[in-house]
């Protein structure tokens, strides 16, 4: 565990908590893509099935349980508790265009053709594009609340920090996971446009507009 990996995990955790608290405190999930949140719940579920088969560390297990729990809690708040505030009309990204190709790719390109490994690969690929419904929604409505942009910033920062972690691990541990690295690069690139707007326009403004 290096500092980049740890701050990456904490950044990821911060993003998840920020979103959960935002919805809870404002009693509203307006501007949040329920579809992206379902995809993230699917990502965590398919990736962390190894909770049942292998123990890595207390840290690892704890974080996985927190991530899965928060993901389902978020989905519950959006689709059940605060369903009335859910902006379904603007959340129109066709998720099957992500899930189906990603599922096919996971079958074709993986480290090992076993159920758990294919599901892990599926989760890695799916995570890299899971934010697209959210970005699509923002581009459609043309704006995002500040707190939503903080959520996106930490969520994007997490994978960017993981990229540095992988460079570190390659040099110091000889660790190299091509699938995670390529998907991580794709994932980070998807946030670049947002990062630029967040840094240049986010300061001192109450709302962030993303040009379509």
């Amino acid at each position: 565990m290096n500092i980049f990996r740890l701050t990456g995990d904490l950044s990821h955790l911060a993003a998840i908590i920020i979103l959960l608290l935002k919805i809870w405190k404002t009693r509203s999930c307006a501007g949040i893509s329920g579809k992206s949140q379902i995809l993230f719940a699917l990502v965590f579920t398919s990736r962390y099935l190894d909770l049942l088969t292998s123990f890595i560390s207390l840290y690892n297990t704890t974080m996985k349980v927190i991530y899965i729990g928060c993901a389902y809690a978020t989905v519950y708040l959006i689709y059940a508790k605060f369903k009335a505030t859910y902006d379904g009309n603007h959340d129109t990204f066709r998720v099957e265009f992500l899930v189906v190709p990603v599922g096919g790719l996971a079958f074709l390109v993986n480290h090992d053709f076993s159920p758990l490994e294919i599901l892990w690969t599926f989760s890695i690929y799916l995570e890299s594009v899971a934010i697209l419904p959210q970005l699509f929604m923002i581009s459609k409505t043309g704006e995002a609340e500040t707190i939503t942009t903080h959520y996106l910033f930490f969520l994007g920062l997490y994978r960017a920090l993981y990229l540095i972690n992988w460079i570190w691990r390659f040099y110091f541990e000889g660790f190299f996971d091509m699938i995670a690295i390529v998907a991580g690069v794709v994932q980070t690139i998807l946030y670049c446009d947002f990062f630029y707007l967040y840094v240049t326009k986010g300061e001192g403004r109450s709302q962030l507009s993303i040009p379509t």
């Binding site: 190894d50 890595i56 690892n60 974080m63 991530y67 090992d112 076993s114 758990l116 490994e117 993981y162």
Partner: peptide, 10 residues
Amino acid sequence: KADETPHDEL
């Protein structure tokens, strides 16, 4: 690979 090295990242 999965059998040799479990995925230790999150």
